[in-house]
Design a protein around this nucleic acid. Structure first.
Lengths: 206, 206
DNA sequence: CGAAGTAGCTAATGTCGTTAGCTGTAGACT
DNA sequence: AGTCTACAGCTAACGACATTAGCTACTTCG
């Protein structure tokens, strides 16, 4: 009986692919094992249990999400960065709704949980999308939270099938991003403050 | 051995209260039965199973949510309706995050599922919040979807503990609602169309 | 090539949702 | 009141699934 050559990373990848297909709530050790051609208890050599597995999926998902946004806004700024980053986030969630759900369900287990780094990478990605707008430093945290709210809200609704049978969702999404873009430019205009917009460093507190 | 006098409604209420305390993912038939002073299998006289119970919680939640918003915006319109309705929705979800999670997880089982009516009531509540703004009819659906996205996004993030240790969440929420209010008034200004803004009837397609 | 470490397996346990079948109660009908 | 029917709730049992214990055999390192 030859070995399958599994690692924690292999198992996590397979589980992430699984939940993207069947949904995060359908995650089961047995299904993952079957997909890997291995008996159920074998997985416990690589992950400590189902919660650990879900946690690893979450870390993977957040890192991939951050990568996707980073790649999408390479060198762009302002309106263009916002539009491209938002679309990147949206398509990532659409293609990987299972692992995104895992990420939403996950909570950091401690101060040095790798999940925190992954989450911070995503928050940094969102912050980068706002760089081009010269936002009053006092309002940066609010703008960032709004962006997170909108992106998360739209993504999770679409992933969960919230927008039933509607064919023009794409239009609504771009309309919404436009709406935010205009509003942010307005905000900038009113604030005559031209300080060099030091990068917001939100950390875990978002 | 006297009877407990349970009904489907009683069980649903108890289960909703339970998930608000322990979280929707911790929903268990045994816990609900214990709370009602009854043995586990007895609940199957009132609900067909765990999925049915979750489904009933979802219907209850959406109806209560719609009521809360309706009560909050009684007779108001425009900016004030938006602000009050948004706050009502937010506090409802904060106080009842378990049943709200149940509602998000639920899917209609058929065309005459009572869940659909409940969802439509909520959508109508949101639509009512936008009445005061004379929005171009072509853009009403987009504005409504944006409102839903923002409210749902914020509520679910806050319910799930997404905004870690941040004390100024209230400020961010009102800032965001203000942002949307300004943007909607802008939208109105540009559209010289003064048609009598017939009520958007989104139905299930949101 | 031998020994240590370990990946994967079989067997067994506990929890939990669910079903089957029984019993006593609450309300209806005479 | 007395009886009869409907059914709420119970006990017992089953099945699915996560998890643990302990064994076997493959792989790698010296």
């Amino acid at each position: 009986m030859p070995r399958a050559g599994l690692t924690a990373a292999t198992v996590t990848e397979a589980a992430a692919a699984l939940v993207d297909e069947v949904g995060f709530d359908q995650l089961g050790i047995g299904l993952v094992a079957e997909r890997l051609g291995v008996k159920t208890p074998s997985l416990y050599k690589h992950v400590t249990g189902q919660t650990d597995l879900a946690h690893r999926i979450a870390i993977l998902a957040m890192n991939q999400c951050a990568d996707a946004i980073r790649d999408a806004i390479q060198g762009r700024s302002g309106t263009e960065a916002l539009a491209r980053g938002a679309q990147a986030m949206r398509t990532f969630v659409k293609d990987h709704h299972g692992r995104y759900a895992a990420a939403n369900a996950a909570r950091p287990t401690g101060p040095d949980d790798p999940l925190i780094d992954a989450l911070n990478r995503v928050v940094d990605s969102w912050a980068a999308m706002l760089h081009g707008y010269r936002i009053d430093p006092d309002q940066q945290i609010h703008a960032l939270r709004m962006l997170r709210t909108v992106l998360h809200g739209y993504a999770s609704l679409e992933a969960a099938g919230g927008f039933q049978f509607a064919t023009d969702i794409d239009d609504s999404f771009t309309w919404m991003i436009d709406f935010i873009d205009h509003g942010l430019q307005e905000t900038t205009a009113t604030s005559t403050n031209s300080a060099p917009s030091s990068r917001a460093a939100p950390g875990v507190t978002l």
